[in-house]
Computed example of a mutant assay.
Amino acid sequence: MCAAMASEFSRPTKFPPGMFEAFQGAEDPAHLSRVAHDTAAALLSRVQADPDPEVVARLVAYTDEHGIDAIAELWSRASAKSLPGALWRVYLLRALIRQDPRSMSLAFQRGAEVSHTIDQVVAGAAIPAGPDEVVELADRILHGLFTGDFAVALERAAAFARVAAVGSASLADDADETDAVHPDRPAKLTTRAYRLTELADELTSCARLWRRDALD
């Protein structure tokens, strides 16, 4: 799922000097896994211990400058139920929202209308949630990973993904497969609904593990 979603957001990668030196000659999967876990743990503990607003702001906006590939190189191959896996998924969700805020806000808004859960409340999005509101929400959720309750931030991201998944599925039902301009729209919306649902489940599992002090 993550590799497929990441392909939607590919941009030229600009690595800061020395950031990925640990990967030289690091074909060993076990080594790559250890580097992913160590960097995620070190980053989170460092920022939570001293949440300098400027540092947090740079972390939130990191992929805006360097591209989602910069984060993918570091954490995307980690287990879905791990600390680097959790960080990767929240960055990926933010990238998805920022790439197409209009369609994501439309999916979230439709999901909030047709679903009968409290997920839209948990996510914390403004109602109605337009493009600007969902972009701002994505930033607040990622910000919360570093400065607030980590599990709550994961649960908010999961809730947003679930609502958007329900909305995407509903929009797919409405889409006209005979549309000559966008004949593949129903299939794309259905695929996105599936991937968002999977993403939500993974983030929820990570939140539970974090609360049990078992998210490594």
Rank of each mutant, 00 (worst) to 15 (best):
Q109V: 02
V163M: 03
F9A: 06
D179M: 10
A129D: 02
R102Y: 04
E8R: 06
R195V: 00
L93S: 05
R211I: 08
E198V: 07
P101C: 01
W75N: 02
A72S: 12
E27L: 05
L87F: 15
R140Y: 00
L142H: 06
A207F: 11
S205A: 15
G124R: 03
D100Q: 11
C2F: 09
A22V: 12
A107H: 08
L93T: 12
H37N: 12
A123G: 08
D28F: 01
Q109C: 01
H66F: 03
P84L: 09
M1C: 06
L74R: 11
Y62E: 09
A61N: 04
A40Y: 07
G25T: 02
L93E: 05
V56P: 02
A164C: 00
D216Q: 11
T190H: 14
A158P: 06
A169T: 00
F23D: 04
P101K: 01
S170E: 08
Q99Y: 03
D174E: 06
G67P: 00
E177A: 14
L215Q: 07
E177H: 14
A129G: 04
R185V: 07
A4M: 13
A72Q: 00
A157Q: 01
K14E: 07
T204N: 11
K188P: 03
I118Y: 12
L74Y: 12
L209K: 09
A180I: 07
Y194W: 08
A86T: 09
A40R: 07
T13L: 14
D139K: 02
V163T: 14
L189R: 13
T117N: 10
A6I: 12
P183F: 09
A70Y: 05
W88G: 05
A125W: 02
L83Q: 14
A158C: 15
E27G: 03
A175S: 05
D28S: 08
A80W: 08
V181Y: 13
E73L: 15
P84W: 15
